[in-house]
Design a protein around this nucleic acid. Structure first.
Lengths: 145, 145
DNA sequence: CGGTGTCGTAACTGAAATAGTTACACCGCC
DNA sequence: GGCGGTGTAACTATTTCAGTTACGACACCG
């Protein structure tokens, strides 16, 4: 399975919500979103739950229940979404502690962490430059906007 | 298991080879490397096999068999290693094709690919700035060099 | 006040990947 | 031919992801 598709699903969810909000419908259900993403509504609710914890959407209960965007599409960057759904670092360190009696085994982990932090920062910077509104424009135009 | 540790293992392998090469030993066995990484020699040979395909190391057979670095440590960047061991993209697209009858489902994939390409490029740029020699220096010094 | 629609989440499943392990054929020097 | 190490297949345990079923919680509405 390699990399996961959580960022893809979450961005799709928000992009779809932005689209239909522009058509005047600002409260939508996980079933409706699932129809566009082509997956199970529970998968969508799980994604929306993470976006809710990040303050990007809110859930409404009772009659007419559903989900609503809390910010304008151009105020939500893919970095916001990344932070909301991605917990693990890009690269894992050793599964087992390396040999501490070896100079490399004893010292390589902090050295790698510094490099990996730089890579992580680079990714975040790249994602920070694109908003949900950009993705929506690119989606409708056939480009990333 | 989340992210894999292939990049970590491969960098550790090359860093250790660079260290012992500096001590005058330029042919080493997968058993010796496995002792530093603290894993199974087969895991190391698998990693070395990818590095060999990328032209970073060579394998020697017969008596005194083992592995040898083909370049100086400061001529091998972590981007070289990344290219050698990492095949999958950073972020996966939808597992199932999204709904093509929906404007978002029909157009979001190329838009996402463009953004993901940018993130991938950013990571490669970050890794390109660090060499195995840098990692070795940082490992021995307690910093990334 | 009970019916209704949706959320929120637990629990389970199938599929896939990682990394560890055993095993063994092959290679090439001595 | 013996020996040490490579190269790789095969198997396993563990973990993750995503899909699915199920069901209690919630809040409006008639």
């Amino acid at each position: 399975m390699a990399a996961n598709s959580r960022l893809t699903v979450a961005v799709h969810v928000l992009t779809w919500m932005a689209l239909v909000k522009g058509r005047g419908r600002d409260v939508v259900t996980s079933d409706q979103i699932a129809d566009s993403v082509n997956t199970n509504p529970v998968v969508i609710r799980r994604s929306l739950g993470e976006l809710r914890k990040a303050g990007l959407v809110e859930a409404l209960h009772g009659a007419g229940a559903g989900w609503r965007l809390l910010h304008e599409a151009d105020a939500i960057t893919l970095l916001d979404v990344y932070r909301a759904v991605e917990t693990e670092p890009l690269f894992a360190l050793h599964r087992a502690e390396p040999n501490q009696k070896c100079p490399v085994g004893a010292g390589i982990r902090p050295a790698l962490e510094e490099v990996y932090d730089g890579a992580e920062t680079a990714v975040r910077g790249a994602l920070d430059g694109t908003s949900i509104a950009d993705v929506l424009r690119g989606t409708l135009a056939g480009r990333a906007g």
